[in-house]
Design a protein around this nucleic acid. Sequence first.
DNA 1: AATGAATGAGTCTTCATTCAT
DNA 2: AATGAATGAAGACTCATTCAT
Lengths: 194, 194, 194, 194
Amino acid sequence: MPIVGVEEIRKQQLIDAALASIAELGLQKTTIMTISQRAGMSSGIISHYFGGKQGLIEAALRHLLDKLGRAFLEKIQQTDGSPAARILCIIEANFTEFQRSELAARTWLSFWARSMHEPGLKRLQQINNARLCSNLRYAFAQSMSRDKAQDAARQTAAMIDGFWLRSALSSDPDENFAAGESLCKTFALSLLTH
Amino acid sequence: MPIVGVEEIRKQQLIDAALASIAELGLQKTTIMTISQRAGMSSGIISHYFGGKQGLIEAALRHLLDKLGRAFLEKIQQTDGSPAARILCIIEANFTEFQRSELAARTWLSFWARSMHEPGLKRLQQINNARLCSNLRYAFAQSMSRDKAQDAARQTAAMIDGFWLRSALSSDPDENFAAGESLCKTFALSLLTH
Amino acid sequence: MPIVGVEEIRKQQLIDAALASIAELGLQKTTIMTISQRAGMSSGIISHYFGGKQGLIEAALRHLLDKLGRAFLEKIQQTDGSPAARILCIIEANFTEFQRSELAARTWLSFWARSMHEPGLKRLQQINNARLCSNLRYAFAQSMSRDKAQDAARQTAAMIDGFWLRSALSSDPDENFAAGESLCKTFALSLLTH
Amino acid sequence: MPIVGVEEIRKQQLIDAALASIAELGLQKTTIMTISQRAGMSSGIISHYFGGKQGLIEAALRHLLDKLGRAFLEKIQQTDGSPAARILCIIEANFTEFQRSELAARTWLSFWARSMHEPGLKRLQQINNARLCSNLRYAFAQSMSRDKAQDAARQTAAMIDGFWLRSALSSDPDENFAAGESLCKTFALSLLTH
DNA sequence: AATGAATGAGTCTTCATTCAT
DNA sequence: AATGAATGAAGACTCATTCAT
């Protein structure tokens, strides 16, 4: 059993602290002080382990995407593998309690906005976006042609993200998230049965 | 004798410069210097006319939303008024050349992210979001019950925004915008005919 | 009858506006905008007539000292000319309603502080200070030797200014001003009768 | 290993530099640059240790009042405790070489003027003012009734401050301070013996 | 390995002055 | 005579980075 280095522990603690700060204050008001305080460490440690604030931010996003991806994989393996079950599972994974939280809204919107000006972040987002579409395409393809599955996946992915975005920006996120999840499911199932 | 209208002219010039800076540098890296330089004026003029940077940013967003709203109204009045025509027009208005530009992507994402932390911006966004849904609902309601029209409008609005967002973040925006617009239209028309 | 020039009228209006602004906002927060707005004129007029903000401030102080001096002269000429009456009149002139106001406190303290760094203002203050002492000395000299009158005048002047200052800075100015005026009178009269 | 006490040392250095700047330039022309330059440090350090310029200014005033208070306590404990000795000591403490300096004049007048607009400073001044009166009252009360001691203390305190103020603003401070101290003593002793 | 003291460039804001009309 | 639009220097504050210990 390899001894986990102190370095890895520290890095993870800092990533957690960074996400906590972004969730609470937003990316713009997150400073190395708000992060290092939450981690109970000194401010210098961030440059020491991540080369700078930007390095930590990217690592945090990478970690968040990884975590959500793994959580999704676990969930989908508990389904019966039918297209409908897989698709419903995918949709639900995008409307979990975390995804509905204001914390998630602040975090994703912050990362998206910043990714328009930082290729490193942008690539991470693109991989995540492609994954959603790919998962949906795989499920749809069990019931229809490859081309139709591709279109169905794109439409469903767009509707999921669109509902998420509009809900996050709305004045009543709760109602909007709930209705959005339901309407996404209705739409996806109607695609499957036609 | 003071020249009348100077204030409005200057304000407009500053708004244009602010949007140019946001499009080029992003909201975060937009400073009063990047704005005033683009406007060919001094930095002090921004506080003079808008009370501060924040006032200018909000005015710029308001202007942008107004402009898009007016452009949409002009367009829709040139249709034959049929539900299908109205809906296609609404979709097209969300995929114009401007909306497909990287400038638009940076601008909207910047505003969205910031609006999570500034109520003033958030309210403007919400009005805009409500408008899209309301326009769609009105068109759908001519062909179906009020409740079904509401769901159809929500789904279509989500798909439009979702495609726009995924395209903006993708590595090949052009292809994605084109496919997105087409798939949105297909979906909306299928809702109308069922 | 000479036609009073527009210049004199404008200058007086600006001086009144400057004093109003200082009384309301304090000297530090008084700007050419707060003055010119109160005067209903443009900001440029101040440089036009007084060469700059500093010129107006000095003119305002000069005017205030003049006005208080004239008011005092009028008052003292209504006394019976006896030493006691003159002295009581002098003391009362330093505890009028205006002198007890927060406006007066702000104005005098502002001018004093600034006069430590601006010889122009300092000279005006010194003339005013000398006048108080001189008036008291003249009154006392009717009842005692020149030397004793000089000391009595200095002590009385100091007590007047000291009570004024301590009252202005206190948390209950009203009570302090009242007690101060009374104790000054008691002291001055005791000097006269010994 | 962090050097202990660095914070206190730096704070003191900055307070000294602030007082030096106020003495030289006045409070109004004292900026974070004039302070940090005199301290041989960077401008950012002020916000780091005092939260901002205002925090440093208040700390400087507090320090000055403390220092004068302690110096006075030391002095008074060297007297024989008789009322006359105590009172003379109190008067002398208000006319020390420091109090006669132009530095002291600029500093006190700056603080007084500013305290009219900043409750934090005002409270500090009031405590100091109350202390002078209280010390005098205690000394007088050993020779007369409580009420008479109260009046005597107020009159003496006013005369002390009044002489100080008039001397500070005069064109010949030295002569005025000397005469003022002498006349204050004469007055206070006459109160004691009547 | 880890600290946190210190820096100083960058930001927004204020405001007296200028000057064309 | 009077305006007020425009300037830009100067102010306080923020914060990522550095580095001696």
